[in-house]
């Protein structure tokens, strides 16, 4: 089981579903939520500070990221993360969880090294069971 993961999505129902499925699949001990890219980025900036102060702080090992979000979308978050946070969180992986059908999104995702999967919604227990061996 993972220690901590971050779910980024503007849809509260999706977040609720994520939480229930993750709990049910026993995928992670802790689940952190963010409503858009900006919130997620702000969180990570606070993690940088905490990480320095608190050696045992568990920052998320995995991010479930939606693409289409207000304020800051998934791509913008990935760009900021890549440019500013990748050194600090080089082990962090991102799973894009989206309803998109645009083929160019799939192509674009391949350009980010930290993106390990591109999955289609909804999140399911089976999906997480398959991912489990890869992240523990």
């Amino acid at each position: 089981m993972l220690k901590s993961i971050l779910c980024v999505d503007d849809d509260p129902i999706t977040l609720m579903l994520c939480k229930k499925v993750i709990v049910k699949a026993e995928f992670s001990e802790e689940i952190i939520f963010a409503n858009n890219g900006q919130e997620a980025y702000d969180l990570y900036q606070s993690f940088v500070v905490k990480k320095d102060r608190d050696a045992i702080f568990q920052f998320p090992q995995l991010i479930f990221l939606d693409l289409n979000m207000p304020v800051m979308n998934g791509w913008e978050f990935l760009d900021l993360f890549k440019d500013n946070l990748l050194n600090e969180f080089s082990q962090t992986k991102v799973i894009i969880l989206s309803s998109t059908i645009d083929p160019s999104d799939y192509q674009k995702a391949k350009q980010y090294q930290m993106v390990s999967h591109f999955l289609s919604k909804p999140i399911t227990v089976e999906m997480l069971q398959n991912l489990k061996p890869l992240y523990s």
Binding site: T14, S99, D102, K121, P122
Partner: peptide, 9 residues
């Protein structure tokens, strides 16, 4: 996308 998002929920 907008159809699929709530439907996936």
């Amino acid at each position: 996308h907008n159809f699929r998002a709530p439907l996936s929920n």
